[in-house]
Amino acid sequence: MDELKLSEIREEIQKDRRAFIKNVLGGTIAGSLLMVIPAGAMEFPEQIPGMQDETGIFITRKKFAFIVDITRCIGCGSCCVADKNEYKVPEGNYRTWVERYIIDDHDNVFVDAPNGGLDGYTEPREDVPNPVRDTFFVPKLCNMCEKPSCVQVCPVGATFQTEDGFVLVDDKRCVACSYCVQACPYSVRFINPVTKTADKCTWCYHRVRKGLLPACVNVCPTHARKFGDLNDKKSEIYKIMRLPHIISVLKHGMGNKPSLHYLGLRREVV
């Protein structure tokens, strides 16, 4: 079932639509073929080059990484809105959110995230007594660890790491025991009150598999969120990772090896 490449299927369709359909109906081409084609693959522009040719059960030729550029984030919350809309995330839960950091000239750190940044930041913080040294925004999302502790603790195999490195949740198996919620060092997991299962950011696996960028990356107006393929020498991600930037991950000491990297992260951020 996996052997047929999408490109071959396309070719087949282009050659002769009528013959193709006849073949499908006649069973020459397996009927289940139609299930293999990712739903609607052809109706989307290919934002990630080469992605629509990845038709196997896993992505084989790519290694994805996510970079958040702290120096570009303006705290508008576009990403949070897009994420909420993409997944209909219930009120009060956040798959991604944006924290505001304020550091005053006495090295005090003030952090807040009213409604997860979903409504943007429209007012300055009034309760900072000393002159402010730096204000910046830190978007948070799943770190997509190479060694995910959430997967380790799941007793029923509901949360797992795919061979292409994405950590996903199977909501048909999840029993909502919350072990993973506790185990995640980055607090990105929650129990979804509607499905009553564990839920978290997936880097929009369903979009990526169709060649689209994650919803938050697609809407970011300042290009602070970047997503791409480390194996693709032409990708921005590849170039950034090879330049002498200040690139860091959150909670390095936990040993989870996140694939989410931050550009220009201050050490005050946890």
């Binding site: 989307f44 996903l168 048909k172 198996r173 979009r207 598999r209 169709k210």
Partner: peptide
């Protein structure tokens, strides 16, 4: 240690944006 179908379920999620 997981269901292969879960990957397919995730891939087939509706693209809303």
């Amino acid at each position: 240690h997981y269901r292969t179908g879960a990957v397919e379920d995730e891939i087939n999620r509706l693209v809303r944006n």
